[in-house]
Amino acid sequence: MCLGVPGKVVGWIDRTPLFSKAEIEFEGVRKVCHMACVEDAEIGDYVIVHAGMAICRIDTQAAIQQLDTLQQLFNSTGET
């Protein structure tokens, strides 16, 4: 039920508060999603969508930092 899927905002359809909607692309598939909780998202941003509604904008910096940390951890002890 708490399944959330990351997708890219490719176009705004409606920016009316409470009724806002955007087209979100998931691995090539586009779907219209509700955006009332992430109204400040811009085209090109990634959001996590749950039950047809974006629940957050993905923090790109945090995402990259997380991957860097994983890579450093991996490099620090070499190949397994």
């Binding site: 039920m1 409470l18 909780c37 749950h50 039950a51 047809g52």
Partner: peptide, 13 residues
């Protein structure tokens, strides 16, 4: 309406 705090905002909206 079922779901945890993740789903509740959609019901509220």
């Amino acid at each position: 309406a079922v779901g945890f705090e993740t789903t509740a905002p959609a019901t509220a909206i």
